[in-house]
């Protein structure tokens, strides 16, 4: 008997996903938004692994690896953008200030 049943894992993944979603909606700091995205990605990856374990298929973990690569790319590019914005003299990392075209936010 495994420690986790499939149902429990899905429950866990759902809760973690919701926490990430709430985080991305609440936080205005872009670093925190990226972290929230990572939490959501982890929740989905967990569902893949759980499904793979449930039906005894290696595809679940293959998808996990792919999600990992996706998260790595997303984080690298996102952090790069944050650095770029910071270097261009934007005073805060407020995501809401970058709402106008031409890079001139209201912040």
């Amino acid at each position: 008997m495994p420690a986790f049943s499939f149902n429990d894992t899905l429950l866990l993944a759902t809760i973690v996903f919701s926490v990430g979603l709430a985080g991305i909606l609440v936080r205005r700091n872009m670093v925190f938004m990226l972290m929230a995205l990572d939490i959501m990605l982890n929740a989905t990856a967990l569902v893949f692994v759980a499904a793979g374990a449930r039906w005894h298929d290696a595809t679940g973990q293959v998808m996990f690896v792919l999600v990992l690569a996706l998260a790595a790319v997303e984080t690298a590019v996102g952090l790069g953008i944050i650095m770029c914005l910071h270097a261009h003299g934007r005073p805060t990392l407020d995501a809401d200030t970058g709402n106008l075209l031409g890079g001139q936010g209201r912040g």
């Binding site: 495994p2 429950l11 759902t14 919701s18 979603l21 709430a22 374990a53 005894h56 973990q61």
Partner: peptide, 28 residues
């Protein structure tokens, strides 16, 4: 707002969960 939205989402997903339970598989 975000709390309500996330809670709704969580509740709906939990409501949707109805997975089959079966015998224990061997590890991959």
């Amino acid at each position: 707002g975000p709390g309500v939205l996330a809670t709704i989402m969580c509740a709906e997903l939990l409501y949707c969960l109805n997975p089959p339970s079966g015998p224990a598989p061997a590890p991959i």
